[in-house]
């Protein structure tokens, strides 16, 4: 299902129906940004476009055109931002939850690490905290539930998994994801431009240190 819905007077929510389409539409909007667009927020099945003071009728027509372009691209191909090199994230796999994940997955710890580092993941979208990226494409054997009781503080750089996703904690925060290890790579820095190493569509590869 796809279409464009009003999100108030200043926003339009484009239904893409699938994450790769969201990423392609996001890339098209970055390359050919309509005038007045302030924020473009991709989600798993949508892209929110915020444009205060812009004629919504005109913008809606433009977004419908771009959406059909995004839908015409091959559904299974790589995301539109795939031309960029993947980000390599070096990891020390010594996380507190490595054992519990191995148990839940019914795999040796060694195999958990191999499967986490063995695939290229793609940033689906960001949320929860600035720079917190939901990485998609995790090996299904590693789809484990969140902790029943979240930790009150997880250090920045923690590499974790929960449900279908993996993530790197950009800053210290409370968190209920299971910790596999840590990276010295600084993925979030407010002094940098852009502040986040990850953006929707970025390809990510974890590498054992």
């Amino acid at each position: 299902m796809s279409g464009v819905r009003a999100a108030g007077e200043h926003g339009l929510l484009v239904e893409t129906g699938a994450l790769p389409v969201s990423h392609r539409l996001d890339a098209l909007l970055r390359a050919r940004r309509p005038a007045g667009v302030v924020d473009v927020v991709p989600g798993p099945e949508t892209v929110l476009v915020v444009a205060p003071g812009v004629d919504q009728g005109v913008l809606r027509v433009r977004l419908e055109e771009l959406l059909s372009e995004a839908l015409r691209a091959p559904a299974e191909g790589p995301a539109a931002s795939a031309e960029a090199e993947p980000v390599t994230v070096p990891v020390t796999y010594d996380g507190e939850d490595l054992e519990s994940v191995a148990e839940l997955a019914g795999l040796p710890v060694e195999e958990v690490v191999a499967r986490h580092a063995g695939r290229e993941l793609v940033v689906g979208w960001l949320g929860f905290a600035p720079g917190f990226a939901y990485l998609t494409g995790l090996d299904p054997a590693l789809h484990v539930p969140r902790l029943a009781t979240p930790r009150t503080s997880v250090p920045a750089g923690s590499v974790a998994i929960a449900g279908q996703h993996s993530a790197v904690y950009p800053t210290a925060s409370p968190g209920g994801w299971r910790l596999l290890g840590r990276t010295p790579l600084r993925i979030w820095d407010v002094a940098a431009d852009p502040p986040s190493l990850f953006r929707p569509g970025t390809r990510v590869r974890f590498e054992r240190m």
């Binding site: 927020v41 929110l48 915020v50 929860f128 600035p130 720079g131 986040s196």
Partner: peptide, 11 residues
Amino acid sequence: RHGYAHLGVPS
């Protein structure tokens, strides 16, 4: 702060 919502930053 606008233009960073896609990076998880509130306005």
